[in-house]
Each structure stands twice: as structure tokens, then as C-alpha cells.
Design a protein around this nucleic acid. Sequence first.
DNA 1: TAGTGGTCTAGACCACTTC
DNA 2: AAGTGGTCTAGACCACTAA
Lengths: 258, 258
Amino acid sequence: MAHSTTTAQQIAADLRAQINTGEIAEGARLPAVRGLAEHYGVSRNTVNKAINILQNEGLVTTRHGSGAYARMAYPIRRLGPDRYARSRWQITTVQAHENEKPDSEAVPQQGHQTQEVNLIPADKDVARALGVEPGSQVYARARVMTRDGVATHTMTSYYRPGDVEGTSIVDPRPGIAGRSGGFQVLTDVGLPPHEITEDISARMPTADEAKALEIPPGEPVVEVWRTTRTAEGRVIEYAHGVHLASRFVWSFTYDIPD
Amino acid sequence: MAHSTTTAQQIAADLRAQINTGEIAEGARLPAVRGLAEHYGVSRNTVNKAINILQNEGLVTTRHGSGAYARMAYPIRRLGPDRYARSRWQITTVQAHENEKPDSEAVPQQGHQTQEVNLIPADKDVARALGVEPGSQVYARARVMTRDGVATHTMTSYYRPGDVEGTSIVDPRPGIAGRSGGFQVLTDVGLPPHEITEDISARMPTADEAKALEIPPGEPVVEVWRTTRTAEGRVIEYAHGVHLASRFVWSFTYDIPD
DNA sequence: TAGTGGTCTAGACCACTTC
DNA sequence: AAGTGGTCTAGACCACTAA
């Protein structure tokens, strides 16, 4: 039979319960490792392991030299199709439309921390999506989005060189070509975006991603692959995003097909 | 400055690289802990920690008494709106439509492992979605879906009692009211589903979920909240799903709104 | 400076798998 | 029976934080 739970798991379960019931409040510090070790009559190692378990469950974060803390819930941004709405990126005489969309009930988007544009050889996925030869040159516009000073997601857009050459998309200055700013530029060159396909999945971050985005242990990422097409079905942008899972929810509404 | 990576992290990085380059093939066994400890000149504890890191990254699973193995990639099921298509659940004279949808390029769906129907008090979320008083009784139809004998996701549907009383939805026998079978039943009682909203997010599983679905360490879950409405906008079903992240990708295609 | 988490060791014992 | 991972200990030392 399955052997009973270990001591570390019991301690983890104990602390987990205290967090879930609010006995240990969100953001509050857990008892010190040495104290817990004495309290449970175990070695420090065992308590460390218990806290490690909770860390990998995303319930706890630790601050070296300071303590272990029940993880705070972050404000969640709801991502729906409306975030791509024309009224959000199309340049009109009126510059209005601030916060009347259910899309962004929360804080408005911050500026991009980084924006980097490179001409790179297309890998297999990108080539297939854009309809070019694998290995041929494509533009890659990589951004890291931040909120309140912490990175929340990356987004890398790929374009066929002929589509965007000479436009501000290729201009690495973090200005006009903002989140959906690329759509305005594509419209300007006669390739107005019309349809979007988003493929969404989740996984644990790679070691590189965890480092680059400073992802805490126990935090998954959501991977988004976005294909943007004109009304004629021509793919004009292929984009790849990596989002901190705890900060977003995606919402889609559609009619049941026949 | 940030202190350099620890020995355990270095060993983890080493093994990670071997897995990513294919030097350790998918499904292959890693060297034994005792061997690695000797090879790196460290204690077994340190190697254990390294493997624990990889486990929490989802790269490795361990089998007690057997070894640690590079995790296999599972076949991924692509979930698009087509899985709710009328042709899939509407009872017609012809019983055809097998595998001609791009939706299910993979293996056809297995039967439900469990199907349980209960009358329970609605919690706040369910009550709000169904438009009933919190605490009032609603039907909850809970299912656990399996594939090749392993659980891949749970799905719990909530209904207003008046909508489904006396129908086969309330009949706990795992038969007609299959995945989308509930839609047929709702249609029969004059509440044909027309529009769906899906809210999607990811997180680490709770301890309970990990136990119930036998989720390996390092595997996130994707949480889906589905609201189904009639053409008139009446909510006829509210459903909550918990999916193993590594087995699914969600796909949505829509026109850019104005 | 005192208190905290992080890491590592050497050894022990246990539980499971494989043959 | 031999080999494997899982857990735990007691103690040491290090690195960071906070007062």
C-alpha cells in the first residue's frame, strides 16, 4: 500500500491549512524555520523541505534572511478580444476611449520595459505561420511588459520583411509600435488586420524564462501563439507570448458552431 | 550581489542540458543518485535536491525503487469551438461525423471514469452565473475524464434545478449525458445552447487536486470556467474544468472587434 | 549583531522495483 | 538479493535582512 505521508508533508499540510483558512494571512510571515523545527520536534532540514513543498505549490515565497511569506494574490488582468479592438489602436481625430471597456477594469498598461527588433532566420514554426521558407530572414520584435515594475509577460512578434520594411515597427525606439501599435502600422501599409487565432497552453517556465522574468518557484506560465490575418486570410503577424499565469485570465465568447 | 548558483543547481543545470539536447532521451532513465553523487563528488542529498528541482520544472518524474526518468511529452489535444458543434451532439437520423473535424485529430475521447450528480447549495460564483440566490440548491454534475487510463481533466457542470429536473442530466448513470450530451438534453427541454463564454487561467494544482488527478510534481493545471447561454442570453449551464496543462491547447479564432 | 533562510555533509533507515 | 529513490538527522557554515 502507499506509505503514509512523510513528516515534511504533514508539516506542509499543516501550514497549508493555516494559510488556506487565513490563520496565516496573505503576505504574513510564517514562523521561523528553527522555531518550527523545535515545535514539531524535527530537524531544520525537514522543515525546509516542507516549506519547499509549499513554495513549489505557489503558496509561499521566501525572502532570504527575512522569512517565508504566504504569497499575495496579484490583481488579475482579464484578456478578451476587445483588447485588440480597432478603437484602441486606430488613429482617429478623437483620441478618447480611456477605460470604458470591460477589458481593462484594472490599471492601464504600463510602458514596455524593453523593445528590441532584429532580423533573424525563421524557425520552423514561424516560417510555417508566415508562409516563408524556414531559415529565411524575418523581423522579430521582442518586448517585455512590466507592471508596477515587475515583468508580467513577454511578447515577440514576427513579420515578413517585405511587409514592414521601412515602417516604425522596425524602428527599435519604444514609441508608437506599442502593444497593438503594430496593427496601425500594418494598416498603413495596406495590410489591415482582420482575424486573430490564439493558441493557449500552460507549462512550467524554462530555467531561462524563470531567470529572465524573475518567476518565483511554483508559478506556471501561459504560452500564447497569436496569428493575425487580413480579411483575405493573409498572415501578417505571428506572435509568441509568455505570461505569468497568476496575473491573467483569458476570456472568449463565441456562438456554438453548427 | 546575487550569490552564485549552488552545487545542486549546477547539477540540475547539467542534467537539464542533457535532457534538452537529447543526450538523455525522452523517457530514458537518468543515472542513479548514488552514481551521480560519486561522479560530482557530493552527497546523495545534494543530488536528490537537484533531481527535485528538475521534477518541479516538469522535466523529470521519478519512480520509487526504479529510477528518475526524463518526462515524456504526451499527445496534446487541441480544443477549439468545434468541440461544441451541434453536429457533435445533436441527435439526427444519421449517426455519422466521426473524425472529420480538425478538433480531434488525435484519439477519440474515452468514457468518463466517474459521473456523479448532486443537489448542492450554490456558492457565490455559481449563484451569480446562474442567476440564483447564493446557497439555493443547484444540480452539480461532476465528471472525471480519462485517457488511456489516466485522468486528464475534471468537469463539473451546474444547472438550475428547474431547467433539468427529470431529465437524463440528473440521471447519474454514465450514459447519454456525456461530454456535450447535456446540450442535447437542454435542447429537448426548450433551452437550446447558443453562446459560450470560456474563462481560462492556469495555476499549480491544490494538494487535493494533485492527489485526486494524480498530477505529477511540476505539472500545472488549466482552469476553465464555461458559461453557456441560450440565444436570448439566459444562462443554462455554468461549468468548471480543471485540466492537466501538458495535455491540452486551447484555440480560438475571432474577428478583430471595432 | 542577532535572526533569518539556503546549502551541504555523512550516515542511517525505509520502501519500492527488478531479477 | 541487489539496486533504486525517499526521508530524516545533527551539525556545520554561508548569505542576507533588519534593527
